[in-house]
Amino acid sequence: MTVSLGSFTFQCGETVPEFEVAYETYGEFEGDNAVLVCHALTGSQHVASGAREAEGTAGQARAWWDDVVGPGKAIDTNEYFVVCANVPGSCYGTTGPASENPEGEPWGTDFPAVTVGDWTRAQRQLLDELGVGRLHAVVGGSVGGMNALDWAKRYPDDVHRVAAVATAARLDAQCLGLDAVARRAITTDPDWQGGDYYGDEGPTDGLALARQLGHLMYLSKDSMERKFGRRSAGREGGRDRFPSDPAGGFFPYREVESYLDYNASKFTERFDANSYLYLTRAMDDYDLANGYESDADALAAFTGEALVMSFTGDWHFTVEQSHDLEAAFEDADVPVTHRVVDSDHGHDAFLVEPENVGPPLRSFLDSGVSTDGGHAPVHNSLFPG
């Protein structure tokens, strides 16, 4: 589904005269049971199967949290009215660089600069259109967790509970650097054409490289060793064959290369390169404390409760960064639980370990902050059945 918000002015000061937001809803609205789910960097509004009147998402971005959102699941759509909106600057129906400008041409890089704050403001306007006032909860993972934190900062009276999963108050220097390299892979691809590539093939090689860097950021050393090791993929034809490699292939094409090549190829079929540039810039720019003296000051007006969830194998958004978030909530006198999940899956754990993510999330949505302190690692054995 798509709704027009009319004219929308971005934080950079530029305005899009006709701004649309694509969204999906699940469950029935009962006045005080709305839960906003914020998607990660290249996700979509298609958070789960069974969306009401879903349009245009099949084959674009799968139901990315289908094991967490749905009837009887952690975010129970029998109980909660779930809304997920595609963020400004993306390419799954919400207005972004690939959308038409007033002259009927793609915006390209003339599209206004986008921030996480713009995502939050667009979501607030969407919810107004849907008749949703105060939210029961906002839940988000990765940069979607930054989006959730921004709700506590920007609209502290509009949300009762905030769940920030595998995220941080800001990116560290290493992740900023990797994102910069990923963007340069796109912008140095000759087919990028300064962002004016629509109608042509576009910078598929650059976008593929950017996505491969992303995959390396999302996996841990342990998970990569377990999945790939140094094994050969069992076939020849790796795209980066060494020039002096004899016919028949002297150097192996390894499983890790095959995995990266396959996933990058699939990604370039579904995602827009300019959107990748815009959304990574928004993530890099986000700083919870911006405009305040500290993270705690930014959260001081929030009167609800918070859940912070981190994963031991995640080096993209670390457990230490989540401890800092927990401390910021505590300093702001916000009741908070920090769940540390013992995992070697890396950053992707919040997507691929629903058995670990679901139970603490369900408990938090239903009952609020745990009275047990919430600091013990989460193991499967703690949540039988």
Rank of each mutant, 00 (worst) to 15 (best):
F311A: 01
P252A: 07
Y253N: 07
V69A: 03
A264T: 06
Y253P: 00
W192A: 03
G304M: 09
D110V: 06
R121N: 12
V341L: 06
Y80S: 01
D372Y: 06
C12N: 15
G13C: 09
V37R: 00
N147A: 12
A296S: 14
A349L: 04
A122I: 03
D333A: 14
R239M: 14
A22M: 08
H323W: 13
G234T: 09
V181I: 14
L361M: 07
N147T: 15
G202C: 07
R230P: 00
G131A: 11
A61N: 10
R124L: 13
V37I: 14
D110C: 07
D179C: 11
H39Q: 15
E326C: 10
K266A: 12
L219Y: 09
T303D: 15
E105F: 12
F81R: 01
T318E: 14
M309D: 04
T25D: 08
V35H: 01
D172M: 00
R231P: 02
T280Y: 01
S258G: 15
Y198C: 09
A137Q: 04
R235G: 07
R183H: 09
V114N: 02
E269T: 14
D67C: 08
S343F: 03
V341F: 05
M224T: 08
N263D: 12
D314T: 04
L279K: 00
D348V: 04
E14I: 04
M217G: 08
R362N: 10
L361F: 06
